[in-house]
């Protein structure tokens, strides 16, 4: 890998306050609560950046608005914004997002991860890599990569 940090001095933003959902006392026992934007965002906001001890939320790599979800069609699309254009970590971040969502969402879901248009030098290549099933599966067989991903995901399970 590259020696030294790719973005040595990232801008750190404040975390947004956790929105607690209002829970009225007499909820219908059988009512369905659909999976929504905030729920997906809650899954991924605490993922740690591969090179800094900050969460993706703090670095504004992902925002709540960058999550598009359609529960009925079982479809999720997450658009993330790398901190610098030439960030070689973009693929790792994308992989983390994909793995986390794979583990957190029901199997019926199709997950689509992509880099925000115009924020990365090799946007097309990264998008292709991230949504190629074979390549993702291959990546997850690489023990080094799996370790790295697990490390990044660790804080999001707390």
């Amino acid at each position: 890998m590259v020696s030294g940090l790719i973005n040595a001095n990232p801008v750190v933003y404040e975390k947004k306050e956790r929105r607690t959902r209002s829970s009225p006392g007499d909820v219908d026992e059988y009512a369905v609560e659909q999976i929504d934007q905030l729920e997906i965002f809650d899954h991924i906001r605490d993922i740690k950046d591969p090179e800094h001890p900050y969460s993706l939320e703090e670095l504004k790599v992902i925002t709540e608005d960058a999550v598009e979800v359609d529960d009925n069609r079982s479809y999720v699309r997450v658009t993330f914004t790398p901190t610098v254009e030439h960030c070689s970590m973009a693929t790792v971040i994308g992989l983390c997002l994909r793995v986390k969502l794979m583990r957190s969402l029901p199997p019926r879901y199709k997950v689509d991860i992509r880099v925000a248009p115009g924020t990365h030098a090799t946007e097309a290549a990264v998008n292709k890599q991230l949504n190629d099933k074979e390549r993702v599966a291959a990546a997850l067989e690489n023990p080094n990569l799996v370790d790295m991903v697990d490390e990044c995901l660790a804080p999001s399970y707390e």
Binding site: V32, I35, E39
Partner: peptide, 17 residues
Amino acid sequence: LDDPKRVVRQEAVRCHQ
């Protein structure tokens, strides 16, 4: 993970992990 209730889904994620 596909439970109709959100709390259950959250617990399921943790349990799965």
